[in-house]
Design a protein around this nucleic acid. Structure first.
Lengths: 146, 146
DNA sequence: GATTAATTGACTAATAAAGTCATGTATTAT
DNA sequence: ATAATACATGACTTTATTAGTCAATTAATC
């Protein structure tokens, strides 16, 4: 039950943008390099975010992309929702009608509880929280090197 | 991020066996029919459980399979572990060394928290809990039909 | 108008999951 | 014994999804 690379790469890309929040446009190429994601793939991941308006973009020289909302207002549940859709571990959780056993199947309840648990974690965390964690980690790295 | 059918079918099959706990061998064919799983597929799902010893089996006429441990002693985390392995949403959670960014990546923490949340749900529930839920549901169904 | 950089669409490759089929082995009943 | 039954195992096929690439387009700046 793995998260898709869309969700993982996309989240990393947004974190990268959050770390450069309010520093003007950032080249997608640079995000790709820093996050070790191929540029062509990243372009496809970022598109829905631009469409959604949480990422701003401008083309051409001195163009680039940037986070269009404050990182503390973007929670991870929303991001993952955009990138991957629902994290229900079984189809029947979101669409009970797709399974004839629905309503008479105890396992469905469990899958529902799992979804809830995942969503709780993701909704309780914002990009800003990630930024702070990330800064702590980078700092530790530097400290340890000395 | 869907659970595999292995995990879902396997859990349903074990719940079926739990509902017939201490009633002697049950035909795999009957489990397959009740749970709407193809017999040949179910045979492959049940094999690791037999190997693990939580399902007993005997071949031949009057043979069958049965739950070899009390349902209240089997928690779902263990079952899913057998059927599908770890529910870590990213490889780096279980094997940090597979990602060069490990230790310097804040997203890894989030995936780790998700895994914990899932495991907490699964480990807090036993097959016996499922049996009770299932019996309530079946009862409701009958009641509503009247 | 040349250059840069995001946008979009079509396409391919890789991987894993799902499922089937055939064969083998153990057990029981007659 | 042997026929019937039912689990066990391995090889294989199919299907679906994800991941990723490539090429062409559009918009902005110098």
């Amino acid at each position: 039950m793995k998260l898709s690379t869309r969700a993982r790469y996309g989240t990393r890309a947004l974190l990268d943008l959050a770390l450069h929040y309010k520093s003007g446009p950032v080249l997608l190429k640079d995000v790709a390099r820093r996050q070790r994601i191929s540029l062509s793939y990243l372009q496809h991941l970022i598109a829905p975010m631009v469409a959604e308006g949480i990422v701003g973009s401008i083309r051409g020289v001195r163009g680039g992309v940037w986070l269009a909302k404050p990182p503390e207002e973007i929670n991870l549940g929303y991001i993952i929702g955009l990138l991957e859709g629902s994290l229900a571990p079984a189809e029947c959780v979101d669409n009970p009608e797709t399974c004839s056993r629905s309503g008479a199947c105890a396992t469905q309840d469990v899958w529902g509880e799992i979804k809830e648990a995942i969503d709780t974690v993701l909704e309780s965390m914002t990009l800003q929280d990630l930024v702070e964690r990330q800064k702590n980690k980078s700092h530790e790295e530097i400290t340890y090197q000395i």
